[in-house]
């Protein structure tokens, strides 16, 4: 490690991490898109914690809900594809972080709140959503797409054009 920049070993590991997160996002999105009747309403109605009111209100507004459903389905899919390909990686990471922040706040494992659906593990403050969020922060700050991903090609092309000017 020189000047805070990572050598290729860690970068390979982070690329694997990026592809895995992308895969997860992509399937979450596609599974919703291909389901006949998926809607975020059920999830939103289960909201707990300090922002529960907001999420529950959203569930009761058909127009907003329909948009939220569309944004979630297509957003997750798009973020997933971009992360796997390493294209616009920083933007995709930010988008993914945005989604996870919302999922996290919808059911935050804060002290004293419990989720009515049985969870598969035990969580206090930190749950798997938050871990995936942190992993995306790593992808974001290391620009993994420029190491192994289409960003490298895009960056190269744009760089050449800029250099010619």
């Amino acid at each position: 490690m020189v000047d805070g920049k990572l050598s290729s070993g860690p970068m390979v590991a982070i690329t694997v991490l990026r592809v895995a997160i992308g895969w997860h996002f992509l399937y979450e999105g596609i599974a919703k898109l291909t389901s006949a009747s998926w809607s975020a309403a059920g999830y939103l109605k289960q909201a707990r914690g300090p922002f529960a009111g907001l999420f529950k209100w959203l569930a009761g507004e058909p127009n907003l809900l329909a948009n939220a459903d569309l944004i979630t389905m297509w957003g997750l899919t798009l973020v997933g594809i971009l992360l796997i390909l390493g294209l616009f990686t920083r933007l995709a990471s930010l988008g993914g972080i945005g989604f996870i922040v919302l999922f996290y706040l919808c059911n935050p494992p804060f002290v004293g709140y419990f989720y009515s659906i049985p969870a598969e593990g035990s969580y206090l403050i930190v749950n798997k959503n938050l871990v995936e969020l942190c992993a995306l922060v790593v992808v974001l700050v290391t620009g993994s797409g420029r190491f192994a991903g289409l960003d490298r090609i895009v960056h190269g092309l744009v760089g050449r054009r800029l250099a010619r000017k």
């Binding site: 690329t15 990026r18 592809v19 895969w23 390493g86 991903g149 289409l150 760089g159 050449r160 800029l162």
Partner: peptide, 18 residues
């Protein structure tokens, strides 16, 4: 700014198979 070489292209496409 640098030239895009074969290695860049290979690495750039390396995660497409995923």
């Amino acid at each position: 700014p640098k030239k895009l070489d074969r290695r860049d292209v290979l690495k750039g496409l390396s995660t497409v198979p995923a």
